[in-house]
Design a protein around this nucleic acid. Structure first.
Length: 604
RNA sequence: GGGGAUGUAGCUCAGUUGGUUAGAGUGUCGGCCUGUCACGCCGAAGGUCGCGGGUUCGAGUCCCGUCAUCCUCGCCA
């Protein structure tokens, strides 16, 4: 018999009764009846109950065993009597009568109990990740992640894509996120950068004639992490040649829908992804990553508040100065207490930094819809009726109002839409609602820098091409740029690329970068485009976020085997860490520590 | 860097208007227990109430500062 096991802990059934077998695993749980001892033995595959009788020579040893020890058990498969069957366990119809026991590895008192579904502090979980990962939920998540990635590969290959690798040590590129840098030992003072994405490489692969590229690509961005954002993450990176935006949609939508359907676990998945222009998304949902499970749709009521008959000065002033007012329906909110509306207002002021949220509550009285609330008296019934009609609401509903500069009002309205949707329980948790957001603007005005900037991806093809760049107001130019959004999370970003050098130079010129800058920073790609570049495009769905959604989790760490905390520290491995002076010398690097605040300065 | 929440036994938590010796569950240790599967029963050990200062006759509780963790804003083309 094999030294450690003949079967796994999830394998044995009634049909094995009478066989002599050997199992190895962790002790999940012990029930000591004094005269009779039960051990639940767990491995990756399942749990099997071991029985030890007091007349067994191994009884004294078995009594010393504790949770999470690793043991090897030899024994006979016994069919349980009817009363002893545990229908909750796959192996619940049998148990193992022990004839041999070997302790492979004992365990200290646990810093983190494996058994049970309790929540534990993140730092403890991360420090003892090897224990945490033994726990059923996260263990299953990690396995599911592997299955999802495996399915992605299979689907991509079936669509005629080929997987290629691109460098991890590459050149820093300006714009975008902060790069992780790696000192170049052989080139004092110079640095490699870890790729934020293999963007330029996959485009170069297209120029090289490979077509239909994909990669499970590791990406690195040195920015502060969030629940849905990590320093290092994986993209299903995709690029195709000789394609229009429509070709890309037709190719990728089935892949992504297929992945979601395969792992949705009973939740419904959007059949045909709606395509929502960016401007429409910003108006109706106040976000470029709308949660379409939320039925609320925002409407613009700037004209209503601008009407001469309205005397609500705060909003009239905003309208007069070119701002906007957006109305957010709150279905059924009329029955909510005053505190519901006050709290929304407090939230807008405190969390959103807004002046506040106006609101009107609408009641149906004798067949007529009548508004009430602090600002209702400033708005004539006729104007209120226009708002009701525009928002498509009824008696018993309310309208919140977000006012300000158009972009500010839109964003505030979007945040309010999310909040109202959640608080009124309008979010259908049984759905994956996917959509394309299309027609992103090429440029936006950067208020802080007081200059024009790329709003999305500088390598995208502007709609209208060179002609648009030369003749249109840059802020009106749209790009062949698109996102995939699911349940309020941006899953993917992509574009038809700009493969013409003259359009590239012009696109950069508009944001203040001259030819020399482009040549210096994107020299490889520009050069490539001068030697026969195919029209091409692609996108890059974020694998971690997809897995997170499909596992029903709200944090990437729940689907990441070895994760960092929010301070970007690996508490298990102790990264980042000091290195020796010798290592630094070899790299021609010296640390310059930040200045310490005065009161902290203490001799130690 | 800003905002919010949290911090009490190995772990999960309770702890009232400030008032005697800070509790429970679980785990650990000891005893009992032959059909449990969150086994049960009895007992014991286990605490810098995150840390520092202040108010007070008296602080886990109130105040100030600070640290840590998470969420979030900035940031993430």
């Amino acid at each position: 018999m094999h030294k450690y096991r003949s079967h796994t802990c999830g394998e044995l059934r009634k049909s094995h009764a009478g066989e002599t077998i050997r199992l190895s695993g962790w002790v999940n749980r012990i029930r000591d009846h004094g005269g009779l001892l039960f051990i639940d033995l767990r491995d990756h595959y399942g749990i099997t109950q071991i029985v030890v009788n007091p007349d067994s020579e191994f009884f004294p040893l078995a009594e010393t065993i504790r949770s999470e020890w690793v043991v090897t058990v030899t024994g006979t498969v016994i069919e349980r009597v009817a009363a002893a069957i545990n229908p909750k366990m796959d192996t619940g119809e049998i148990e193992i009568g022990i004839t041999g026991l070997e302790i492979q590895s004992a365990a200290k008192e646990l810093a983190l109990p494996v058994f049970g579904e309790l929540d534990y502090p993140e730092d403890t979980r991360l420090k003892y990740r090897f224990l945490d990962l033994r726990r059923e939920r996260i263990h299953n998540n990690i396995v599911r992640r592997s299955q999802i990635i495996s399915s992605m590969r299979k689907r991509m290959v079936n669509e005629g894509f080929t997987e290629y690798q691109t460098p991890i040590l590459t050149a820093s590129s300006p714009e975008g996120a902060r790069d992780f840098l790696v000192p170049a030992r052989m080139h004092p003072g110079k640095y490699y950068a870890l790729p934020q994405a293999p963007q330029q490489f996959k485009q170069l692969a297209m120029v090289a004639g490979f077509d239909r590229y994909f990669q499970i690509a590791p990406c690195f961005r040195d920015e502060d992490p969030r629940a849905d954002r990590a320093l290092e993450f994986y993209q299903l990176d995709i690029e195709m040649s000789f394609v229009t935006q429509e070709d890309i949609f037709q190719t990728i939508e089935p892949v992504l829908r297929g992945i979601f359907e395969e792992f949705a676990d009973g939740k419904s998945v959007t059949k045909t992804f709606p395509r929502i222009p960016y401007l429409e998304a910003m108006l109706k949902y106040g976000s470029d990553k709308p949660d379409l499970r939320n039925p609320i749709e925002i409407v613009d009521v700037t004209d209503q508040f601008g009407d001469d008959s309205v005397s609500f000065k705060a909003f009239k002033g905003i309208v007069a100065s070119g701002g906007s007012v957006r109305a957010i329906p709150a279905p059924g909110a009329a029955s909510k207490p005053r505190s519901f509306f006050d709290k929304m207002n407090d939230w807008a002021r405190k969390d959103m930094g807004a002046a506040g949220l106006g609101y009107i509550i609408f009641d149906e009285i004798d067949g007529e819809i009548v508004g009430r609330g602090p600002i209702a008296k400033f708005i004539p019934a006729e104007i209120q009726a226009q708002m009701v009609a525009k928002a498509g609401i009824n008696g018993g509903d309310a309208l919140f109002f977000a006012a300000g500069k158009t972009s500010t009002a839109a964003t505030l309205a979007g945040a309010a839409r999310d909040r109202i949707g959640h608080q009124l329980g309008l979010i259908d948790e049984t759905k994956f609602e996917l959509c394309w957001i299309v027609d992103f603007p090429m440029y936006e005005f950067d208020e802080k820098e007081d200059k024009l900037d790329f709003s999305h991806n500088p390598f995208s093809m502007p709609q209208g091409g060179l002609e648009a760049l030369e003749n249109q107001d840059p802020l009106d130019i749209l790009g062949y740029q698109y996102d995939i959004v699911c349940n309020g999370f941006e899953l993917s970003s992509g574009a038809v690329r700009n493969h013409k050098p003259e359009i590239m130079y012009k696109a950069f010129e508009l944001v203040g970068y001259d030819k020399a800058f482009v040549d210096e920073n994107f020299g490889g790609m520009i050069r490539a485009f001068e030697y026969g570049a195919p029209p091409h495009g692609g996108l890059a769905p974020g694998i971690d976020r997809i897995v997170m959604l499909l596992c029903g989790e709200e944090n990437l760490r729940e689907v990441t085997m070895f994760a960092m905390n929010q301070q970007a520290e690996d508490l298990l491995m102790g990264a980042p860490a000091n290195v020796s002076p010798k290592q630094l010398r070899e790299l021609h690097v010296r640390s310059v520590m930040p200045e310490v605040k005065k009161e902290d300065k203490k001799a130690d």
